[in-house]
């Protein structure tokens, strides 16, 4: 009722302020019902192109299934090498996902909430492992953490710690390539969540840690699960960096992808069989997580 009386020099600011207010209200998730309603009315072309994209993703898997040696599958998959590689893969990928959570969460908060000096450069460095060829990533890790590496030589001299050729090394290689997926997902969610709820919690007496635990993390819960899922999946499929940095030794560093590569040398059919477990494990976990990605 007073908006009509506004004019003069403050008019511009008025528009800005009320736009911001509307945006804030919208971001609180006013009408999810309306959103679902709209999404069922997609243009037909869009839907078709979407199906083409899905086919691009699903067809290679269908190809694998079609070539799978179903009759010999049980004997191939129950071989000790494959079971050993499965165990190493699960340990390495889960440890890498946990590493991403522990290290990536603070980094995501710093990127989203702190004013940084060279934000673009820092963000580019964070995303670098996504574009780096994995073999290069592994070599870079050797240069940094290897026995002759930048930091690795001191680890070796002072603590007698040598990471290459150990399971810990395989975890580091997998975490290195998986970390950006987690950080980027969580940072985007934190940015989208904004400061509003954080400020509200502060006026209610919540301190900095309390706001992170009781407000920020529950608010971005779907993104947390999505980030962990992506990082884990990336770690599970990791090949090049692991091979280069951690080598390949049965029961220690030889993961399923490395076992698949070896099987390819001996018997391509066995390689298909081994990659089927990788797909089965990944699908099982990703499907289970999918429900958690979407907010209730």
């Amino acid at each position: 009722m007073t908006a009509d009386t506004n004019n003069g020099p403050v008019a511009d600011k008025t528009t800005d302020a009320s736009n911001a207010e509307n945006a804030n209200i919208a971001s609180n998730g006013v009408s999810t019902v309306e959103h679902q309603h709209l999404s069922s009315k997609l243009p037909a072309t869009l839907t078709w192109v979407g199906f083409v994209a899905f086919a691009l993703l699903a067809l290679p898997v269908a190809g694998l299934l079609q070539r799978a040696p179903w009759s010999t599958l049980p004997s191939i998959l129950s071989s000790s090498e494959v079971l050993q590689a499965l165990r190493v893969s699960l340990i390495v990928s889960l440890a890498a996902a946990a590493t991403c959570l522990v290290l990536g969460l603070p980094l995501a908060f710093v990127l989203a909430r702190r004013r940084l000096r060279f934000p673009r450069l820092i963000r580019a460095v964070v995303m670098l492992p996504m574009v780096l060829p994995p073999v290069v990533a592994g070599t870079a890790l050797l240069f940094a953490l290897g026995r002759r590496g930048l930091v690795g030589q001191w680890l070796d001299n002072w603590f007698g710690v040598s990471l290459p050729f150990t399971t810990a090394g395989a975890v580091i290689a997998a975490a290195f390539v998986a970390l950006p997926f987690f950080v980027v997902t969580v940072e985007a969610a934190l940015r989208q969540a904004g400061d509003e709820l954080d400020e509200a919690a502060a006026t209610l007496g919540a301190g900095a840690w309390s706001r992170i635990v009781h407000v920020a993390l529950p608010t971005i819960r779907p993104a947390l699960f999505a980030g962990i899922g992506l990082a884990w999946a990336r770690a599970l499929g990791e090949f090049g960096a692991t091979l280069t940095f951690a080598g390949s030794f049965g029961g220690r560093t030889r993961t399923l992808p490395l076992e698949t590569y070896l099987a390819l040398e001996r018997d391509p059919e066995a390689a298909v069989a081994v990659s089927l477990i990788l797909i089965a494990v990944a699908l099982a976990v990703l499907v289970a997580l999918r429900d958690r990605w979407t907010p209730r």
Binding site: N28, E196, A200, A201, A202, T203, V215, P295
Partner: peptide, 18 residues
């Protein structure tokens, strides 16, 4: 803010969605 004796009801509510 968390140590001031001040409470605030925001124009845009800012309720915790979870």
């Amino acid at each position: 803010a968390e140590l001031r004796p001040v409470g605030m009801a925001f124009q845009d509510y800012r309720l915790f969605g979870h």
